[in-house]
Write a protein that binds this DNA or RNA. Structure first.
Lengths: 118, 118
DNA sequence: TCATTATATTACCACGCGGTTATTTAAAGG
DNA sequence: CCTTTAAATAACCGCGTGGTAATATAATGA
């Protein structure tokens, strides 16, 4: 799968508060569908759908234990998401440093602007 | 606004490849709607919609310069998103450490399991 | 004043998402 | 076997999203 597709799936999986709560719960250890459904005012099929979204995003994985299907967190994709964000924050910061230096220079030696700020 | 709502808006804004590309572009400096629309095979109103999503999420802000409306990156919300992810990665890592220790202990002194792995 | 440029807004459409209830599948265990 | 338990699947619904084309708004500048 393409990196961009993976980011699509990861970020849209993280965009739902129920799914974030599921991940938060799974961060403390694996859990079954019914265990995960219990704290929510929501049907079991609804939770199963959310879990499928999280699986497609590669954020969780399934084990098999009799009739149970315990889920556990798979944090690799979270890392990719953080990496994407941090990359552009860094570029921005560098740019901001330069802008800052430029502003200081302009205060020291003010000159004509290309377009007036209205 | 609630922190959870902000995360909803931030992550769903990041879930679209066009919007991520826009943010990547804005990380290198501010740009107008038409400048942003140019590299995409997409109409100007489509880009304006994407920009509105990014604004609602607080990821960008608008300046006024004559008829132009240059957008610039507002990286604070990206920080909130990273913080959320990193928090649960950390909890998971700690849990994983403990699990690791437990597994070592089990190998040293194996005992009855509660439920067979089938 | 009038044409041009930049952007926003409106109206529309197809599609996917998040939820429901009802039903089905699969394994466990008496 | 048959019942129970755990989870998945199907069918459905309302709504938001991502796109379009057409039009409106706003500021510039000749």
């Amino acid at each position: 799968m393409q990196a961009s597709e993976r980011l699509d799936l990861t970020f849209s999986a993280l965009a739902d508060p129920t799914r974030r709560a599921i991940l938060a719960r799974l961060a403390t250890g694996e859990a079954t569908v019914t265990e995960l459904a219990e704290p929510f005012e929501m049907s079991q099929p609804a939770i199963s759908k959310h879990l499928k979204v999280l699986e497609r995003a590669g954020l969780i994985s399934v084990d098999v234990d009799a009739q149970r299907r315990p889920r556990k967190l798979e944090p690799g994709r979270l890392g990719e998401a953080v990496d994407w964000i941090e990359r552009y924050r860094q570029i921005f910061e560098q740019n901001y440093q330069r802008l800052d230096a430029l502003l200081e220079e302009l205060q020291a030696r003010p000159s004509r602007r290309k377009r007036a700020k209205k």
